[in-house]
Design a protein around this nucleic acid. Structure first.
Lengths: 146, 146
DNA sequence: CGTGATTGCATAGCACACTATGAATTTGGA
DNA sequence: TCCAAATTCATAGTGTGCTATGCAATCACG
């Protein structure tokens, strides 16, 4: 018998559902700030300054997506851009004082959300969870390439 | 580029990344049509007619999200709405002939994407994958409730 | 029977993701 | 040197998701 295609056995459905629940759980814990800023906070919170392209690659999103996110974060005075002296096309992005505060809050919230979502799994199961997801991610990334 | 430990051990990051890769893999295989329509196709492809609220619940999205999706699908003549004779607030949504064709295409594409993404896992690992994700989803759903 | 609560849907406004495209700058090769 | 290719970023347009809110219809109960 053919495998019945159902929502509950669809990798796309379950990962999408889990991802949206993670995002909502995070945003409930953040009065100001939203989930798309997390990878930027993660990259910059140690004081480093990256270019937009580096941040996009680091976050695993396309460049225009990161451009929009940085525009909002600049509007909200979470980041600052300083022109790159060696390349006039480029800026180095770094956190403002406010940005560092928000980054610390966001990091704490992310830990709490992970505790809720993954806390129902044993340490061994958590390892399996990440290992399986990483393999699925690798397979899908390979599918996108020529 | 060295891996950032935090990102790779964040449930939100990995599920979000996997979900977006599933969506992109699906949409590459669909010339017309996009991923948000999948749950509607899935619910209606057996000829059933549901209300908007039922579809939203079935898809696991909020009502305004489904309202937008149905509006686009109606614009593209994939669905039709017939007024509910018993409740003048409500309509029953069903697939048009074009919608049924697109639903069949989408279902086939979804199976192909699952084969790519989950094909790297053994049957046992696939079972673990879904079981673990369902438990994480349940934990996060519980977090949202009072 | 009426009225307050609930339900079904629409709309507004935002965040964030994508593709496609273009402008400016830098790089590299003939 | 000089011009074509590559790189960096911005912008336009669309889809999908959310919360907040409002209106109309239905329901429930005193």
């Amino acid at each position: 018998m053919e495998e019945q295609y159902g929502r509950e056995r669809s990798g796309g459905y379950v990962t999408n559902r889990a991802a949206r629940l993670f995002i909502r759980a995070l945003e409930r814990r953040l009065v100001n700030g939203s989930a798309g800023q997390m990878p930027v906070f993660l990259a910059l919170s140690d004081g480093a300054a990256y270019t937009q392209t580096e941040l996009a690659r680091h976050a695993g999103v396309e460049q225009p997506t990161m451009a929009n996110t940085l525009q909002r974060m600049e509007r909200d005075e979470l980041i600052a851009r300083t022109p790159d002296p060696d390349d006039r096309r480029s800026s180095r992005v770094s956190l403002t004082k406010l940005g560092r505060r928000r980054a610390a809050d966001a990091m704490e919230a992310a830990l709490a959300v992970n505790a809720v979502g993954l806390g129902v799994l044993s340490a061994t199961e958590r390892d399996s969870f990440f290992a399986l997801l990483h393999r699925v991610i690798a397979a899908l990334e390979a599918d996108g390439q020529p």
